[in-house]
């Protein structure tokens, strides 16, 4: 698939990135180059090869169900731009 300015704007929106209109042409060109490389990858014959989720041949270690994390609220609250009543504040979210 070819990427045009519209797709760039759409992807930027999904990723919460601010992209100026004068950047989209250059960006679509580079993204198309990447897709060309993916197209090349897709030429490879992978019949009978199971999809790979992770390159390492190891499995996830599991942890016992115990509460060991300390309460860090007093330490992290001062880092936030705005807080009130123990909550982090963000610009009003309206559904």
């Amino acid at each position: 698939m070819a990427i045009d300015s519209k797709v760039v704007a759409q992807v930027a929106h999904l990723a919460c990135l601010q992209v100026d209109d004068n950047e989209t042409a250059a960006l679509s060109e580079r993204l198309n180059d990447i897709l060309a490389m993916v197209d090349q990858l897709q030429q490879a014959d992978v019949d009978g090869v199971a999809p790979l989720a992770h390159p390492l041949d190891v499995s996830q270690p599991l942890r016992d169900d115990q509460v060991t994390e300390p309460d860090v609220r007093e330490r992290v609250m001062p880092i936030a731009p705005a807080t009130e009543a123990g909550c982090f504040l963000v610009p009003r979210v309206i559904e």
């Binding site: 115990q66 509460v67 860090v72 609220r73 609250m77």
Partner: peptide
């Protein structure tokens, strides 16, 4: 007792953000 990916408590009714680990 603890969360899916962290060892902080799943208890409800506590002070806001007191069971939120890094």
């Amino acid at each position: 007792a603890s969360k899916l990916f962290s060892a902080s408590s799943t208890r409800t009714g506590d002070e806001p953000n007191s069971n939120a680990s890094l």
